[in-house]
Design a binder for these strands. Structure first.
Lengths: 297, 297
DNA sequence: TGGCAGCTATACTTAAATTTATGAACAAGG
DNA sequence: CCTTGTTCATAAATTTAAGTATAGCTGCCA
């Protein structure tokens, strides 16, 4: 017969050691002490039968085996925090915690007033906002609700199509006064452009759909759409952003509105099982209303 | 600030109490003692802030809240055992544990020789066979590999189309000698038929595709396809089973081979991430070869 | 080179959790 | 109606795991 199953707590400390890189740091993070964390790792290695880390005075280096187990430990962490969120909404009425995942731009520029309104209506509801461009897995319950720019392919997810967010070139008047207003797409090559650092899937799909874009040089490259937006507002140059966001600043002008435009289809997505959960339901409805209003300007 | 996160071990004992229905039974199952399990439940209730069970001298009755948390706890258990399986295959070479999910009939009638061959080739590989008609969720890692009769809809799953398994009416010669051989579909209403207890999704799709089936009365109803097959072999009456399984017993005859036939499309499915795992890879390949050979008779 | 800051590992002590043992409440069966 | 076999709850004893303090190693910087 095999050895007994290890304590599930070991997985938690294992994951923390993995992400922190040292026993001491993991101990600080978990509210434990370094010897305890060390013992947990030792015990786990003992049960599994192979080493998870190579020890050194600078910290612990994960072995290949440890890296292979990492996704499982992450799934455990995600599920356990989803359980706590589900439990948080049990004390009758609408309360507890709901975790919302959205892109940086949406999370920073669009959601705050919507969430503020939601909070006014349900003061007992705690909102976790994950404003990040890394996609969180709803099936793994890494978030309860997500605002997505791609059609969700999985069943077991309820998806509400919000509509299309129009994008276009925008620039500050101070820049345009200084450098002139481009009249054609080709004029862009003589301008200061704000663009992407790495080619993400979203970018490639833009490129594929608008082959008439000239080969341009970006004067400022950044992965952060929020930083791009800030640069546009600061008059750095011409960049792509959501039309509705640009329209909020009177000094911003829509450049080449006819020559270039694209739409970002937007969905609001939630796990099927959460449909009955009051805390997720009210958050879903509030987001749906708020985002639809945003899209209609 | 909130109270500290509960020990993940509490979830394990919570789940066991839920499925066993009493502290004592859960304790026996977990290799703990009843007071320990009781304290775990108490501690979890304390942290969550609401009761999970109503105690009684006959056992513990879960509250609605507890039932809502059950799927999360089950996901934790599934992931943790998937982690252990993944870890079991780490000691170099092909070894460890691979968990295979298949329908009862496939698991009992078709897989054993295939798995035996696999085990001969890789003696260090432990095989878990879940022969059950309840579908295990591959995304939740409840199994590593599954033989499925429906096209897998999810991405993140690699699916290999094996082919179509032909089904038809079959009966033992002793029965046919006694009761005669039906010549038309309508003759079936005068025969002893073996059929299904509840209407499953598979049955409904059969019914939908062959509307010319007469309204028949089943003399033996059972949900277990294996029991149906056994009844056919025992000469109880006429029933539906896989042609290839009937052909193994010379005394069985294919009834109405032209008037009724249907095919069960078969897929072999595995989680994408396991493609690189040696233990799953060899099992997947062996199943693919074996099932394809089975379909070609 | 010396000193500081980070880490892990090891003895020792203390705290916590588990087991053991027992009592009380309820259901089933003679 | 009493006995037997369940159950859960509680209090004391023991084992287990945690924290504390310290030593040893490495790298960095003056």
């Amino acid at each position: 017969m095999n050895k007994a199953e290890p304590s599930w707590d070991f997985y938690r400390t294992f994951l923390m050691v993995l992400s922190e890189g040292s026993l001491s740091a993991a101990a600080r993070e978990l509210g434990l002490t370094q010897p305890t964390v060390g013992r947990h790792v030792d015990a786990l290695e003992e049960v599994l039968g192979f080493p998870l880390f190579t020890r050194s005075p600078q910290g612990l280096l994960p072995t290949d085996a440890a890296l292979e187990l990492k996704p499982y430990a992450e799934a455990l962490a995600a599920t356990s925090s989803a359980l706590l969120r589900a439990a948080s909404g049990q004390h009758g009425a609408v309360g507890g915690t709901v975790r919302i995942s959205a892109s940086e731009v949406i999370g920073i520029e669009v959601l705050p007033p919507i969430l503020a309104e939601l909070n006014r209506e349900y003061p007992d509801l705690t909102i976790e906002l994950s404003a990040s461009d890394t996609v969180e897995d709803l099936l793994r319950q890494e978030a309860d609700i997500a605002v997505r720019m791609v059609r969700p392919a999985q069943d077991a997810l309820v998806a509400l199509h919000i509509g299309a967010v129009p994008l276009g070139f925008h620039a500050h008047r101070s820049y345009l006064d200084r450098r002139g207003v481009p009249e054609t797409i080709d004029d862009l090559s003589r301008h200061t452009l704000i663009g992407f650092d790495r080619e993400t899937a979203a970018i490639r799909s833009i490129m594929a759909r608008t082959p008439d874009l000239p080969a341009v040089r970006f004067a400022l490259k950044t992965d952060s759409n929020v930083a791009q937006l800030a640069a546009i507002r600061a008059g750095f140059g011409i960049g792509i952003c959501q039309d509705a966001l640009a329209a909020r600043v009177p000094q911003l002008a829509h450049v080449l509105p006819d020559a270039f435009q694209m739409k970002l289809e937007t969905w609001l997505v939630m796990h099927e099982n959460l449909r009955e959960s009051p805390r997720c339901r009210v958050a879903f409805d509030a987001l749906a209303r708020g985002l639809q209003a945003y899209i209609r300007q």
